[in-house]
Every structure is written in structure tokens, then in C-alpha cells.
Amino acid sequence: MTEKKFKFTIDDQEIEASEGQTIMQAADDAGIYIPRLCDVEGLRHQGSCRVCTVTANGRTTASCTQPAEEGLEVENENEELLNYRRDLVRMLFHEGNHLCPICEASGNCELQAMAYRLSITQPTKFPYLQPVRSLDASHKDIALDTNRCIRCGRCIRASQDVDGKGVFGYVGRGINRRVGVNGDNLADTDAEISDVAIAPETCPVGCIIRKGIGFSKPIGKREFDLSIIGDQPPGGSDD
């Protein structure tokens, strides 16, 4: 049985989609980049960061979870959406403690790269919350610095759905929601360095740290030294 195909437009460009695809998946297949942070190839869609917000027939929606439909008119690149995305990314910076100059994820960080893509040079529109969060370095191979967590949930989905472990999960509600571990600390869990949840491409920021390798890639060779996020195939470079 052949897969049903249909067409819709993104920024007036007609593209083809298959039944069951989200707007973002169809856009990726057509080579159109929609900014995202919580969505990553290989994990189920969550739609929580809202950076992928587009308008579909005039209504805003998360393109990573919204199914594509025949004849849909999607807008991805306009000033209003750009400003939405900028504010969402700014708020992520302000809600955590993101000290790019001393963070080992700098240059490989999707949050930082997204800020550059969106031309955010002064994230000062909102107050800094400056939360006090301790670093969990109890595990021999892994450290967890939730100062840098953006609650994308990629580690949670990877641990539950791919590793089958449930090392990570959300705790708290609303502004106090954060990622916690299934135990008093990381050493109490069955997390292993080989888990997909711990893989460098899972955590978009510097929250999950693989111990002892920080700064081993020189400036100039890091992922986003080489290209702007989105100006490459989704999933990052293979370097």
C-alpha cells in the first residue's frame, strides 16, 4: 500500500508531506529549518519548549507536535514569530544560570547557538532569577549541573523510551519544575556513561556532563564554531 502524500505551504513554498508527519518533520524533509530545542531526532515529540512555534492557518502551534494537513498554510519566518522565539530563548537564559564563558558546553550548546541564530546579544529584557542549584557530581563518570537545565526533557525521554531506565524525571510544578534523578543523587541511580540519555547529542546544554572531557575540543572545531544551528541537517554534525 502506498503512503498517502499531500501538499501544504510553509512561507508560501509548497512542500510535500506524508500522512502522519508533523509540520516539523515535513519541513525537515523539504530542507526547511524550524528552530527547536526540546525536539531531537530519535525521541518522541514533546512540544514543551515552544521555540518551534509557527502559525498554521493563522493559529500559533508547536510544529514538532502539530500534524501536517493538506492545504495548510504555515508561516515559519516572520518578525512576530522571530520575536516570540527570542523571548522564549531569553527566558530560558534568565531562568537558569547560563554562564557561557566558563561552560564546557560552550560552542556545542544548542541554547547558545539558538541565541546566536536569533541574534540575541543582550538577554536583559527579563529579570535574572539566579536560582541556587547544587552540582551533583556523585557519579564516577557523569555530573549533573541543573543550573544549565532548560527542562527540555530530552534526557527523560531518552532514559525512559530508549534506555528503558527512568533515571531522569520531572519534579515540582510550574516555575519550580526541574529535572531530578531517580534517587538521592546520580550515584544512586543506574545511570551509565553508555546510556543514550547521557550521550552528548541528548542534552542540548551543559547540564549532563560526561566527566573529564570538558574543553578537549579546541575553539574553532566545536560544532557551532563551524556552522549556525539549523544551517545543517537536523541532529548536528557528524564531527
Binding site: P101, I102, E104, S134, A137, A143, I209, F215
Partner: peptide, 14 residues
């Protein structure tokens, strides 16, 4: 204090 050892050469240069 509390930061990871490989971060230190990058932090203290600030």
C-alpha cells in the same frame, strides 16, 4: 569551590 576540576583553568582566567 564545588566546581569540577577541568573547569578551573577556564574559570580562574576570568
Amino acid at each position: 569551590q564545588g566546581r569540577l576540576l577541568w573547569e578551573i583553568p577556564v574559570i580562574v582566567q576570568r
